[in-house]
Design a protein around this nucleic acid. Structure first.
Lengths: 263, 263
DNA sequence: GGGTCAGGCTTACGTTGTAAGCCGCACTGG
DNA sequence: CCAGTGCGGCTTACAACGTAAGCCTGACCC
């Protein structure tokens, strides 16, 4: 009841501010860096003060996810009404999702993996508002229930997979890992093809064959065991994400269209 | 007696045992429950002892991921040689991946989100061995480089998206307290289409208003704001994962086939 | 039999999330 | 105007976490 009336109370912190700070930290240094204390200190405040605005760290992370997804609401391109047909609508929606995903590559895994409240709420379209919007749009475009469901799931699954792949490729492991313990290879593995582990016995952690063991700091791979990878290395490294997203999306929409056309 | 003897040192703990224990804990109670102390105590050992076998918790998690992916090596179905053609090979591989994903729904997010060593190593096929296997198989099936790359990326992205969706649907949020402290907000936000978003003051990131607020403990949704969701609720809840995986996979393989047929 | 050392255990430290409670100030109704 | 109310900060405290450092024991080899 107690509505803040008259001149709005000169409040300092708000939930939105806390969420925004958390998101900034995540964007800059990854999820792990967003500790309650770190977020607080970025706001010039003590950690416990945050709890006046969020219930728990997990809750805060959920709120961050929702804030990210909510960027769709502010995306003019996406927001345009659906009067140009379902295909146009889905296309704009997909590009909008990609936009927010690429805007927050460190946070996107959060969007994709945070457990949902119901089995049919899935990333990357996690808000009931947008789910409703999509389903309703398809329905009023003449899709029957079966077709709507098919489209909903294919669409989600495509975006999920593609964008996780893309953001994953853009956020690699910190190469600071040199870190003695695991890969104490001071010397770069000689272009030599022989995986001779001379000495190097010092490494107490006789780890069982990690992928990292097979890739030296320069990113070269052992050619002997993996000739095809080696041959395709250049192509594998190419950044084709833009066009492949387009192609994939069009293929998906074609499939939907086909499904709608035939019984 | 208690001490095994014979040839080499009769050891108690091994890296594999630690990894296995970690995986069990993750499967049973989620990643968060797999603390060093918890893993150790499950093995009847002190936490610090684990460090004789793994270098760090992060390293252990990486090892867990590798162990999971390595289940492909033990999957007879997948392992059969590729003499029945690339399509058969990819189909078996895909089903194998799905098998391990469903075997470890709590761990799968780990597989999908742990940062890789190179941008082209991506889930769910994270091992150089399998990547090499796949690329080589396609090459010897007559694919040119372009086609190989296309197939590799589409395949990964499809599996990633579909399986993350499926495992996500199977591991929901612990339905505990209704909380509410997050929603100290007074103003109800109109969600959905035509948001009529009044001008946002500065760059405030988002509104508070959690999805959880709109779903009661029974899983019912507010019908007023989300009529289409409500109408489709039953269908949305249906478990069609098996057949949809098949369909999706076939569609993917068809697309590959088409791409290989035409220039 | 003495030396080595793998592989456990103990102790200790810094950091984390958060429960509990304190206090000042802005605002309120009388 | 003044006493009261409660929002929104702060302080303190604690259990659990990852892990650095070092100790201790018993199986092995010469």
């Amino acid at each position: 009841m107690g509505t803040p009336r008259g001149g709005p109370r000169g409040k300092g912190l708000t939930t939105e501010i806390v969420v925004a700070a958390a998101l900034e930290l995540i964007d800059e240094q990854g999820v792990g860096a967003a500790s309650m204390r770190a977020i607080a200190s970025r706001l010039g405040v003590e950690a416990m003060s945050l709890y006046k605005h969020v219930s728990t760290r997990d809750g805060l992370l959920d709120a961050v996810v929702e804030a990210i997804v909510a960027e769709l609401d502010r995306d003019e391109e996406v927001r345009r009404d659906a009067s140009d047909g379902w295909r146009d609508y889905l296309e704009r929606l997909a590009r909008g999702v990609r936009r927010y995903a690429l805007a927050h590559p460190h946070a996107f895994p959060l969007v994709t993996t945070r457990p949902a409240e119901a089995p049919w709420i899935n990333p990357p379209l996690r808000s009931l508002g947008w789910i409703e919007s999509m389903l309703a749009t398809l329905a009023s475009a003449g899709f029957d229930d079966e077709q709507i469901l098919f489209t909903y799931r294919s669409f989600n699954s495509f975006l999920l997979g593609y964008l996780l792949m893309e953001t994953g490729a853009r956020t690699l492991r910190d190469p600071q890992d040199g870190d003695g313990s695991l890969g104490t290879s001071d010397e770069p593995i000689p272009g030599g093809l022989t995986p001779t582990r001379t000495e190097a016995e010092q490494d107490a952690v006789a780890e069982a064959e990690t992928v990292a063991d097979k890739i030296d700091p320069q990113g070269d791979i052992e050619i002997a065991d993996h000739p095809t990878i080696h041959r395709l290395a250049a192509r594998l490294a190419e950044d084709r994400f833009d066009e492949e997203f387009d192609r994939g999306l069009q293929r998906l929409l074609d499939a939907v269209e086909a499904r709608v056309a035939h019984p």
